[in-house]
Nucleic acid binder design. Sequence first.
DNA 1: AATTTAAGCAACCGCCCCCTG
DNA 2: CCAGGGGGCGGTTGCTTAAAT
Length: 366
Amino acid sequence: MGRAPCCDKANVKKGPWSPEEDAKLKAYIEENGTGNNWIALPQKIGLKRCGKSCRLRWLNYLRPNIKHGGFTEEEDNIICSLYISIGSRWSIIAAQLPGRTDNDIKNYWNTRLKKKLLGKRKQTQMNRLLLASGGQDFKESNGLEENSLLQNLSNSALERLQLHMQLQTLQNPLSFYNNPSLWPKLTPLQQKLIQTLQANGLNENQSPLYALINPSENQAHELGQKVRINEFASTNFKVNEVEKSTPIDEFNNQKNVLNTNVGQENMREIQTQGVQGFTQLEIDDLILNNKGSIVLNMPSGNQQISEFDCFKEIDDGSRENLAWWSNDFDTNTTSSSNSWGSSSNIPQSTYEGMYHQDYALGYNLQ
DNA sequence: AATTTAAGCAACCGCCCCCTG
DNA sequence: CCAGGGGGCGGTTGCTTAAAT
């Protein structure tokens, strides 16, 4: 049993409003107001429209001082900053822009502003992060649903994170994302491996051992998401490696991965012939420390970082902001999509604190 | 010039908050 | 205190127009 509809669906007109309908509605409301009852309004005027439809038409097009199109650079900045801070709370965003409606801003964001912000090239870069983190694209490409780094992020949060990083990169070329010196360090043995390869003029993929710590694209695909995440970690970002396995599991996992990744032949080659410049102990160490899951920088234990630690170098002191990316934010603070109004159950201080943090960043979108 | 594809946008849908009786 | 229903909201649809082929 659903609830009763707000109007007689069979007897209401749908679709675009005619000038006559607009005129009727506008004239009536200007003279009498809405009477605080939208549902009853169309009957009074003699309009065959749903009350909600009347309300929408009035709020979005007929009421005075509505602006359409021609968004200014300043408005763009405000929309973007607020979107990053609070997500798709269009009514709140609209409240900061006199004359703009939530619907207009929503459409503007979805069709233009988002594209303006995320250029083609940067989009590709960010997709890599999403892929590596188990984002939707990657899920679709390999069907994996579990073990994603950012699986606690909602789509909206991911998008905001993406935008935040994008803007961070544009604004600060020395930020974490653009600064290799901030990227995680290789272990001494891993450095030695790479140096040895370079010294011998070998391509990385010519070494079966190297494949242990840097699987190729299709190898990663075969191995699934876990490897993919770490592959990305090895070259670009610190990411979180969720270790759920027991040591025995890890051992078996390692065997499976080695069998799949390097192949029986390569493993035999490594084990029987060794690798030039490396002792058997070092080879074992490399294999063991990389655990088959190709954990380059987080072999085990202490080097692991918590989920959001990986972003703490985005800009120092702003780690608090990152809480707003998480699902906790979306679910815990907004039991519904529209609980952000003046009657919100969120303490005002929290709201203001959140609001000012990113808003103060004053992103320049040019 | 005709057709297809993409973009823009108005309007609808359905959920949920909260007021009222 | 509770249930019903109106208002408000975000997500989505589908129509129109513009651009590309």
